[in-house]
Amino acid sequence: MRKLISFLSGALFGAGLWLSGMTDTSKVQGWLDVFGDWDPTLAFVLGGAILPMAIAWRVAETGGTSFAGSAFPARPPIRFDRGLVLGSILFGFGWGLVGLCPGPSIAALSYGGWPLLVFLAAMFAGMAATPHIVRRLDRAVPAQ
């Protein structure tokens, strides 16, 4: 049952990304172009993601269980550290340059063509390199 729920949730998420335009790189770049030809429609997508998540955290705090019968995970601690800031900056650069982030790029696999494959290769290479870069940064400049 758990795998079926995971599959259906992933399919719904992917369909939502596609329907909302999050897999269309020009639409995403139009959203990010606030000083040019700005396209505000993705604000509804972002708002539509925040509201259900806020409700989900409230339900999780009641100590209930999921549809699959497992306990909800604990709310992660709020930490603003060097990793979060650097990761956010790099994510923003990639999102702005390409118009895709990990979720929509996977959702666009069936029609993205070779540019998407180049993006995915770069994304996976960056994910593989990150632990090595972090260790090197930690040796050079210890986190406060």
Rank of each mutant, 00 (worst) to 15 (best):
F119P: 04
A128I: 08
A125W: 05
F93I: 15
M127C: 15
I106N: 13
F119N: 08
V98M: 08
R82G: 11
S110A: 15
L109R: 01
A129S: 10
M127Y: 13
S88H: 01
G94A: 10
F80Y: 10
L109T: 12
T130S: 12
R82S: 11
A125N: 10
F80P: 00
L120C: 02
L117H: 13
W95D: 04
G83P: 00
V85S: 02
P102Y: 00
L120D: 05
P131Y: 08
G126H: 01
G96N: 14
W114N: 08
F91S: 02
G99L: 03
A122L: 15
F91Y: 13
I89G: 01
L97H: 02
M127R: 03
A107G: 13
G99P: 00
C101S: 14
A107C: 14
S88T: 14
T130I: 03
A107Q: 13
I89M: 07
I89Y: 01
L116N: 06
T130W: 05
G113L: 01
G94H: 08
G126Y: 02
A129C: 03
L116M: 06
P115H: 11
G94I: 10
S88L: 13
W95E: 02
M127G: 10
A122R: 06
S110H: 10
I89P: 00
L116A: 05
C101L: 04
A125S: 15
A125T: 15
M123N: 05
P131Q: 07
Y111Q: 15
G112N: 04
G94Y: 00
G87Q: 09
A128S: 07
A129M: 12
A128M: 06
M123A: 07
G83Y: 06
V85T: 09
W114Q: 09
A122T: 14
A108L: 13
L117F: 10
V118T: 05
D81Y: 06
L90A: 14
G94V: 09
G83K: 08
P102V: 08
G96R: 14
L100E: 07
Y111H: 13
C101F: 09
P104F: 01
G92M: 12
F80H: 04
A129W: 02
V98K: 07
M123G: 04
G112Q: 02
G87I: 10
M127V: 15
G94P: 06
A121P: 07
G112L: 00
S105V: 05
A108F: 02
L120G: 04
G87L: 08
W114L: 08
A107H: 13
L120F: 01
I106S: 11
F80A: 07
L120W: 09
G87F: 06
A122Y: 09
F93S: 10
M123C: 07
P104H: 04
A122C: 15
P102M: 00
F119M: 03
I89L: 10
L97M: 12
F80S: 01
L120T: 07
A108E: 03
L117E: 13
D81A: 12
A107I: 10
C101T: 11
P115S: 07
R79K: 12
S105H: 09
F93K: 03
Y111W: 12
G87E: 01
G87S: 05
C101E: 05
P115I: 14
G96K: 10
A128G: 05
W95Y: 04
L90T: 09
V118D: 04
S88W: 10
A122W: 05
I89R: 00
G103D: 09
V98D: 07
L86V: 14
A108K: 13
A107W: 06
A122I: 14
V118M: 01
V85L: 14
W114D: 10
A125E: 08
